[in-house]
């Protein structure tokens, strides 16, 4: 089955070798996608967990696009065209890698800012009614 697939891909692609990311072939062997065992939901409405899962998946895809764009720019600096072949062949240097690690960390911190915000408020020992008190105070 695998062999037949390869032949078919060859016939279609002709001399141009299709890159893996450019032409996703129909899958010859299917993986299992759902893990056996209860899927836990943590929020009162399970749809919130599902939404969060979607947002994080989307966050991942944006990160991938951003990195691909960065690869375009790095190729441009070297006067190379951003073809999928060049993109696949591109090997980031140590310093580019480090820049990307840093970028990703900041990007994720931006997306999840509201989560850690709550933690910071507890650390500041701020209570919600402290704010009401100051509203009263400045209005007196």
């Amino acid at each position: 089955m695998a062999k037949a697939k390869k032949k078919a891909a060859k016939a279609k692609g002709g001399s141009k070798k299709p890159t893996a990311s450019a032409t996703p072939p129909a899958q010859p062997i299917k993986r299992i996608r759902t893990a056996k065992g209860r899927r836990p939901y943590f929020f009162d409405d399970p749809n919130i967990d599902k939404l969060l899962a979607m947002i994080m998946a989307l966050t991942g895809e944006v990160s991938v696009i951003r990195e691909r764009l960065d690869t375009h720019e790095r190729l441009a600096e070297k006067k190379q065209a951003p073809t999928s072949k060049n993109i696949e062949a591109y090997k980031p240097s140590e310093s580019v890698d480090q820049w990307r690690v840093q970028w990703r960390a900041e990007y994720i911190a931006r997306i999840l800012r509201i989560v850690t915000d709550e933690l910071e408020r507890i650390k500041m020992q701020e209570k919600d009614d402290d704010y009401d008190k100051i509203v009263d105070e400045v209005s007196k």
């Binding site: 990311s21 991938v64 691909r68």
Partner: peptide, 14 residues
């Protein structure tokens, strides 16, 4: 691939 590696890096960062 480029994008697969990028996804992996993302999940590590996350």
């Amino acid at each position: 691939t480029h994008d697969e590696a990028s996804r992996e890096s993302f999940v590590v960062a996350l």
